[in-house]
Design a protein around this nucleic acid. Sequence first.
DNA 1: AATATTAATATGTACATACATAATAAAGTC
DNA 2: GACTTTATTATGTATGTACATATTAATATT
Lengths: 233, 233
Amino acid sequence: MNRDLRLSWTDVRDRIQARIFDRTYAPGDKLPKDDEIAEDFGCARSTVQRAMQDLSQSGIVERRRKGGTTVRADPVTRATVDIPITRREVEERGCKYDYQLIRREMEIAPKSVLARFGMKVPISLLHIEALHLADNRPYILEDRWVCTTTVPEIMNVDLAQKSANEWLVRNKPFSRCDMSFYATKASHDVAAQLDTELGDALLVIERTTWIGSEPITTVQAVTSPGYQLFTQG
Amino acid sequence: MNRDLRLSWTDVRDRIQARIFDRTYAPGDKLPKDDEIAEDFGCARSTVQRAMQDLSQSGIVERRRKGGTTVRADPVTRATVDIPITRREVEERGCKYDYQLIRREMEIAPKSVLARFGMKVPISLLHIEALHLADNRPYILEDRWVCTTTVPEIMNVDLAQKSANEWLVRNKPFSRCDMSFYATKASHDVAAQLDTELGDALLVIERTTWIGSEPITTVQAVTSPGYQLFTQG
DNA sequence: AATATTAATATGTACATACATAATAAAGTC
DNA sequence: GACTTTATTATGTATGTACATATTAATATT
């Protein structure tokens, strides 16, 4: 067989996707089984499998053993968000990065914080407030709680010099990260810290991480006014 | 070889990930090549390849032909957001879904809208304003522009009955979707539509879609107060 | 008819092999 | 030294085969 004519899995994916787009296979429809598509296209089943893997991850089709492949009836719009280290984010915008530690003390975590970890029993955690600046202007205000039983080393880190954000992400990899986004009105304190108006609408990025089942940290990153978070590709 | 002892690609991934987590391979470090890992673990290279594919997609490692595999120096926190059809989202919360068309007319798109499509020349687009309700309470206010040259069929759709959101996602698949999130203060109009206070902080989900290089639609979904957007697994 | 058991089946995985591709390193040229 | 050309090499892909696994469908059992 002429190798130049061989289909790549991206070709196969695109052709199947095209058939979904032009409604040859409409939402809810069942697709032929991989073997049939492979024979139809003149390629190996594993090539179809690779294409289907991609379509499945994109949320376009759903696959079940024995059940076959179906076009998702209720298509979802799926996107990926990347949250880099704040320093890097600022520097990639071509701004000068600065960082200020506002507060750092052990505290009994309030219920709202415990809830993010899925814990009930009150426990003392390291509470950190810090400000990230871009070109000397407040950029992100972070309100963080770190679990010192999972991450005892954090007690020896000079958080006035290096942000917990940076230290954690470089030194404490996580296996699970829950994230959420919401809007909040700038309180008196927050407005003062971010040097903005009381009542301004601010985007909050909340993240909670674990290693295995051990909680690492939870953070509310309150962004400055006008902040916009974009998805990747 | 005893098949029961064979490593699955998830095992391989987990073991490599563990070595990254315990800093055997620290950020920026180069990993052994697939062949070596395969021999080390006693599995086929393709199994390592599958594991690496996953780690690469998760943003944990970076792979380059000939260059090899490196642990990402500046780790990013990566997450996936799924935006379902609004009806489905409301119903999955166990609420009654309703929908109201507020406005629907052809209009010259303002520059801000054209910019989202990456267009310069002013053009007339279908402008739609609509309200999604959950248990009779305003849930999401959508402000949408549809490109009628790409989607002429939309002109024949009764948007008073079926939301453009739903119709488009079911009938006009897209190949590209740009998304962004930000916070906004409720204007007089928005506050009235969402039945909330003037100046409330609201999360806006902005999406723009294309099929190939043809623009389909762009929408600002202004959520009601307290709305929180979560990432997937 | 409802339930448990068994068979059938489409997708998923593991492996070996051969080749493709993109980056890098080495060698050659001016 | 600066530039171009040419190997070299690690990852990526395509294929075939053999099994594993999860689900559905069929059958037997109560």
